[in-house]
Amino acid sequence: MRILLIEDDKAIGSAVREHAAAGGHAVDWARTLSTARDYAAVAPYGLVLLDLHLPDGNGIDYLREMRDRLDATPVIILTARDQISVRIEGLNAGADDYLVKPFDLGELSARIHAVARRYGLRPEPIFSLGTLTIVPAERRVDRDGQTVDLTAREWAVLDSLLRRPGAIVSKTQIEDALYSFGSEIASNAVEVYVSRLRKKIGADRIATVRGVGYRLAVT
């Protein structure tokens, strides 16, 4: 999943970005609201992690802007303001969840998964495809009872296919899930990671739709 992280603190931002990336997400990190607006204008995001106290404005205002333009991207607020009234204000403005700093990165991962599930990005918490079992919450894949090790980028590809099991996911969508801004993108990167993934979970599990993209074979 491609995540927009809006956070002005360097220590928190870098740790959250690394943690989310290790979890198989592509993270674009904006330190200001104006940068976040620029990013959001050119890339679709599956989730926004939003700080409230930012150098060029209040995160709640940005959230209201999003909802005003009917942008339904899930938003998790990350803030040091722990008053319940601020939390209620954030939820009323359209936030999906609220995490008070300092937080546990593991808890952040759980919240991200919960929000993603709530939005139907993963209709089922556990996928059973023949001898293949995928548990997104634990980032675990079992094949014939054996755990399959996936790298972060291989997981990102599988995660983007899992969002709509059986439906076609375009190559561009997979690229968006793979890379954040500033990363080097090889022209055949998607093909390379799909190929590696097929070797690990079974070639017949990912079908190629020529000229369009890929889909997870659920039958």
């Binding site: 220590a11 928190i12 959250v16 040091a80 722990d82 700093k101 300092p102 937080f103 593991g106």
Partner: peptide, 14 residues
């Protein structure tokens, strides 16, 4: 106070 502690904690967890 919370922000630097949050940064230190997140970096430590990484």
């Amino acid at each position: 106070l919370r922000t630097p502690i949050a940064g230190a904690l997140a970096q430590t967890q990484r």
